[in-house]
Structures are given as structure tokens and as C-alpha cells.
Simulated assay, not measured.
Amino acid sequence: MMSIVAILLVAAAAAVQAFPSLSARQSIMALTTSQIDSFTPYTYYASAGYCTNVQTLAWNCGTNCNANPGFKPVASGGNGDSVQYWFVGYDPTLDTVIVSHQGTNPSEILPLITDADFFLTSLDPTLFPGISSNIEVHNGFKDDQASTATDVLAAVESAMSTYGTTSVTLVGHSLGAAITLLDSVYLPLWLPEGTTFQTIGYGLPRVGNQAFADYVDAHVHLTHINNKEDPIPICPGMFMGFVHPAGEVHIEDSAEWAACSGQDNPSTQCIVGDVPEIWDGNESDHDGPYNGIEMGC
């Protein structure tokens, strides 16, 4: 199943092929109100990732849980410190398994993506069998995803079996979005053929190199939503070899949601053009609002 952004951008790509002179600006399309609203259940699931594992397992986390009252939790974990909170369950209305990972605030994620201690590294072949060693990712994000990978996989398998679904939707904000994107590469390697996936990330930092971005474009139905002048999505820098996959939606100051074609689209309607340097950003935009929803429990 194609994501909303994928459908829009397929149409845009066809237009560009028919008329090669069309600019990147002309290939950017505004989402309709109904398309924007369709993300709302997933936004609340991403926000619920900030709630404790006890709260999400009981599905008793206030507004975030109340927004999706039919959700059936299956498993949760993490400690909110050394291991990000996560939860897995089933949404009967959407008929999909939900996987959500906790994010963090800008003051905690910025050092992870701007200090000199991190580096690009290959994925663990035990967790990611058959993935080329040319595909490299942020070492910190890699370690965070590895710390919960097998538990999340077991929970997804249990949810799929219990509720008879073949659909998996992965969500997360900030650091949680980075972990979620790695899960989006990991889980399809282990789940049955015929399982369908979609991934929706909010305030996603760059996770890997060009080979990683190309792999994601070929294998993951990704939408990553950036709010206004959030500086997190432009980090780590492209000069360090990091590249965003396609699938960006940029919430502009006008409140328009712009579907941006390609990888790291330089248009000023997209995050790379709107926030060319980190000091051009506004950390307060990182948590939202995303169609009226602020991230956090």
C-alpha cells in the first residue's frame, strides 16, 4: 500500500518526465485537508511513545491513548533512560499493527547528531542479514535500535498472529523516528512475505548514508514530516555523508503541508531550503504542532 506522499509524488514524477523543464518547485504538491487529517491517528501513536511502558501496556496515557480508544496493546518496553520506551499493539479501525518508539527533546538529541563522537557504520549482519556493508548508519541510532530489535519483532509477530493482520505501521518522533526507520529496514527481513509496511516519522534526523537512503527509497514506504524551522531534520550534515530518503512532508509557516519530491529537496518549501544551517532553525518547532498535536506524554 502506497503512502499518501508516495501517491502524490508518483504523479509529480510523471509530470516532470512529461515536461522536463519543470522545476523542483513545480513538483512540490500541497496536501489536502483530508490527507493531512489522515495522519492524525499515527501522530497520536508517535506522541504516545513518550509515555511509560506501564502506561502504554495498560493503554492509559491520557489524551494520546484516548485519541485511539480501540487500540489493543500487546507489549511494551524500555526504561525511558538508557533504552527508549516502545510499544506494540493492534488498531482494529486501521487494521494494522502499530510499532512506536519514544523520542527525545532537542537538547538531548542535538548532541547525538552534532558532536564529533558519532560516525557512520555498517549494520549488524546478524540483525540485518543480506544487507550490503556499503549501507551505513549513525552508530548511536544503530545501537538504540539493536537494544530493542528482537523484543519488538517478537511483539509484532504476536500481534499479527493474534489479530490476523498482515499490515504493520511504524511511527516515531525525533530519536524515536530514527529508531523506527531502522526498524523499517529490519522487520521486513524477518516477517512473512506478503506483510505490508508503512512508516511515518516526525522530526526525523538523517540516519544513514547515500546507500542507506537509496535502500529505504526502494524498500520502505516512508513519510517523514518536518515542522516549520525544526533544525533536527537537517542534522547530521550532508557534508558528513548523511542523506535523507525521499518522502518528506514539510509543514510551512502558512500551515500548508508540502509534499517534497526526492532526497533532501533544496526548495525553500522543504526543510533543507527553509533551514539551510542549524542556527537558522527554531528548536521549539521540533515538538510540533503537527496538525494541532504536540509531541509528549
Rank of each mutant, 00 (worst) to 15 (best):
E252Q: 14
P41L: 00
A213G: 09
M240R: 15
L31S: 08
G273E: 04
V99A: 08
T33G: 13
E248Q: 15
P106M: 08
T268H: 13
Q210W: 10
T63L: 04
V220F: 07
A149F: 02
L112M: 15
P236Y: 14
A255E: 11
T121H: 03
V168W: 04
S284Q: 09
G247L: 10
S82N: 14
L153Q: 05
M29K: 14
D117I: 02
Y202D: 04
N53I: 06
V54I: 15
Y44I: 06
E252P: 05
K228I: 02
I278M: 08
A67T: 04
L170N: 02
T180A: 13
P92Y: 11
Y202M: 07
A18N: 15
H250F: 10
A149Y: 10
T148A: 03
G78M: 15
A246P: 02
A146Y: 08
I28T: 14
V220P: 02
L181G: 05
D274I: 01
I98R: 08
V74N: 03
E294D: 11
C297F: 01
A155E: 07
L222F: 13
V10N: 15
I234K: 14
L191V: 10
L120D: 01
I251W: 06
G164I: 06
A75V: 11
I278P: 01
G130L: 06
Y45R: 09
P41E: 01
Y44F: 09
Y202A: 00
T56D: 12
D264W: 00
G203D: 05
E193M: 12
L153R: 01
L189M: 10
I4Y: 08
T96C: 07
F197G: 03
M238V: 14
A18S: 13
T52V: 11
G78I: 15
N66C: 07
V88T: 10
A211K: 03
L175R: 04
N64H: 00
L120C: 00
I28G: 00
Q263R: 15
P73L: 06
A213F: 03
V243D: 00
L182N: 08
T166Y: 07
T199G: 09
G176A: 12
W279T: 10
A11S: 07
T33C: 10
S100E: 01
G130D: 03
E108T: 12
N60F: 04
T40H: 05
N68C: 10
T33H: 14
D230P: 05
N68R: 11
A14I: 13
P276M: 13
F128L: 01
M160D: 04
Y44L: 02
S38A: 14
V168R: 02
A24G: 09
S132R: 07
V207S: 03
N105Q: 11
H138Q: 11
H244G: 05
M160R: 11
E193R: 15
E108F: 05
D95T: 13
D264F: 00
F118I: 08
D280E: 08
F19R: 12
K142G: 00
N291E: 15
E294S: 13
S122I: 05
D230T: 07
V137N: 12
K228E: 10
Q263C: 07
M1Y: 13
G176C: 09
D37S: 10
A75N: 12
